[in-house]
Design a protein around this nucleic acid. Structure first.
Length: 208
DNA sequence: ACGAGGATGCTCT
DNA sequence: GAGCATCCTCGTG
């Protein structure tokens, strides 16, 4: 089946809806003549009034009239742009910006299932033996798909951007196959169930 | 399978 | 200076 790029409208909605609907969608990554694709199996929502969101302190300042700047400025910008940031000084994490411009929000892509270009992904992660460990975490999938800081702020909805975008191929998930849980690895707002994953999928990072 | 500990650099206080 | 949306290695079971 032909896969179609997700438009900006898809992302210009509330973050939780986008996080849920991204499950089962594809990430397409073209590196030269090489096409990689992977199905999204785990996401997390990060909201405007959410202490775990990188935009949180900028939101406080915004109420005093100070404009967002630095790392989190992208989160206040156009929906459907990439937000890529360095975590623990070592790993790049791939998010997509949500909500209307002016309202911050993002969905973290936490795990994917490789569809095309598995051998290329393996070259990016040469020490990995077990297939499911190739892309079962946000840092891992960024390495496997070659997603780094050069993509931060890039509009993924524009047709001219052929290197990285989201697509729909008609794959559907029944609601009983979607699991909701607390987000992983955070200390703030840990009781909010804003993580979503596909039940029994071997590429999900951890079962919790 | 699972838990502890270390690597490493940016952001915020 | 503390904290951090992680991953890998090495131990044990």
């Amino acid at each position: 089946m032909e896969s179609l790029r997700l438009s900006q409208d898809f992302f210009a909605r509330d973050t939780i809806t986008v996080a849920r609907e991204l499950l089962g969608k594809l990430i397409i990554r073209r590196i030269g003549r090489n096409e990689l694709s992977a199905r999204i199996v785990e996401t997390e929502a990060y909201l405007a009034d959410d202490p775990a969101c990188h935009a949180y302190s900028s939101m406080q300042k915004l109420r005093k009239g100070i404009a967002p700047s630095g790392r989190s400025a992208v989160l206040f910008g156009e929906p459907g742009c990439a937000y890529v940031y360095l975590n623990y000084g070592m790993y790049w994490l791939f998010n997509v910006v949500t909500e209307r411009s002016g309202t911050p929000g993002a969905v973290l892509i936490r795990a994917v299932e490789p569809v095309m270009g598995v051998t290329t992904m393996q070259r990016s992660r040469p020490h990995i033996v077990k297939p499911h460990e190739l892309t079962n975490g946000p840092g891992k999938l960024a390495l496997a798909l070659g997603i780094g800081p050069e993509f931060n702020g890039r509009p993924l909805y524009e047709a001219s951007n052929k290197e990285l975008f989201f697509a729909c191929d008609g794959f559907k998930i029944s609601s009983n196959m979607m699991v909701t849980s607390p987000r992983i690895g955070i200390t703030k707002a840990k009781d909010e169930h804003w993580r979503y994953y596909i039940r029994e999928n071997p590429f999900v990072s951890t079962i919790k």
